[in-house]
Simulated assay, not measured.
Amino acid sequence: MSDQQAIGAVVHLYVDGMAFCNEAALRKAFHPDAKIIGNYEGAVEWMSRDNFIAAILAKPPAPPGTQPLMDIEITDIEGDAAFVKVTDEFAGTRFTDYLSLLKIDGRWVIVNKLYHLHR
């Protein structure tokens, strides 16, 4: 599998993990020390991976068979570092996510998520 394909698989794992409230998928996609940052409901939100997963699990999952929105607009890879811009939806809300990934021990993981909440 190429780095491009492996990164796409991590992004897919992340989007499906959010859509279907799949804790195991989210834990696999994100590094344990990852940070999730963005403006949410008028305030800057700084979350750890575990706080982010808890927030996802507090919402109802998408119905089985749903095809989550995942539009990867940019993927930029340089050695063991990568950046992905992806538009997705969670709980009926559209986001643009800027994901920083790092290849650690041969596996790509999200180390940072900066998001924009669309109105």
Rank of each mutant, 00 (worst) to 15 (best):
S2L: 06
S2V: 03
S2D: 15
Q5W: 01
Q5S: 12
Q5N: 12
A9P: 00
V10Y: 06
V11P: 01
H12G: 11
H12Q: 15
V15L: 03
V15D: 08
D16K: 08
G17W: 01
G17Y: 00
M18F: 00
C21P: 03
C21G: 05
E23T: 04
A25C: 06
K28D: 15
F30C: 09
F30Q: 03
D33A: 08
D33W: 00
A34Y: 04
I37F: 06
G38L: 07
G42R: 07
G42Q: 10
V44C: 05
V44D: 10
V44M: 09
W46N: 14
M47H: 08
R49I: 05
F52I: 01
I53E: 03
I53D: 01
I53H: 04
A54G: 06
L57G: 09
L57I: 05
A58G: 08
K59P: 04
K59E: 15
A62Y: 08
P63Q: 14
P64C: 10
G65L: 10
Q67H: 06
Q67W: 02
M70A: 15
D71G: 04
I72K: 02
I72P: 00
T75R: 04
T75S: 02
T75L: 07
G79S: 06
F83N: 06
F83C: 01
V84Q: 08
K85H: 05
K85D: 02
V86D: 03
T87S: 11
T87H: 09
D88T: 15
T93F: 08
D97M: 01
S100I: 06
D105Q: 13
D105H: 08
D105W: 04
W108D: 03
V109R: 13
V111L: 00
K113A: 10
K113Y: 12
L114A: 13
H116I: 05
L117R: 15
R119P: 13
